[in-house]
């Protein structure tokens, strides 16, 4: 049965008719056509679907769209400035070659931004632990860890 869900996505209010069984990620990808949020697994391990909900990184494949009623959601499409300038965390991923195929990248960046808000100058170990819920098969994490460290410091500096 179709039900209505209303929320804010990337600063814009949206309302959509969804089946009750619709996942948040399905709403984002299929209905809102924000395809930067990806699905890489079905057991909530890979984190490619990570978005920010009310300021916290969550896995949009692990919640129903209905659970996001009234929420403020940000996807990777909403991270850069409107003029296209990359967010400091995005810029750090680019500078440090923190991405290869790009598929896990949006989830990595969304998680990293939330993490960096709480850890302005994170240690290597803190970063690695923070990536417990994000899988990457390309980079070996080496440059992702470097990028997140640099991105967090850049975020802190730009405050």
């Amino acid at each position: 049965m179709a039900v209505k869900v209303s929320l804010k996505v990337n600063g814009k209010s949206v309302s959509a008719e969804v089946e009750e069984r619709t996942l948040l990620v399905t709403l984002i990808r299929e209905q809102l056509r924000l395809t930067g949020t990806h699905v890489g697994c079905d057991t909530a391990q890979c984190g490619a679907c990570t978005v920010s909900m009310n300021g916290m990184a969550v896995k949009s494949c692990s919640m129903l769209a209905m659970q996001a009623e009234g929420a403020d959601v940000m996807t990777i499409e909403g991270v850069a400035k409107p003029d296209g300038t990359l967010h400091p965390m995005q810029a750090a991923f680019k500078e440090h070659h923190g991405l290869q195929c790009g598929f896990c990248t949006p989830g990595m960046v969304m998680n990293a931004i939330d993490f960096a808000k709480h850890h302005p100058n994170p240690s290597e170990q803190e970063i690695r632990e923070a990536l417990e819920g994000n899988l990457c098969r390309c980079t070996g994490y080496h440059n992702i860890v470097k990028a997140i460290g640099a991105g967090a410091r850049a975020m802190a500096a730009s405050k």
Binding site: T35, I76, V79, G84, K94, G102, T105, P106
Partner: peptide, 8 residues
């Protein structure tokens, strides 16, 4: 990278 980092 730009397109991958911006969800494009």
């Amino acid at each position: 990278d730009y397109r991958f980092l911006t969800g494009a």
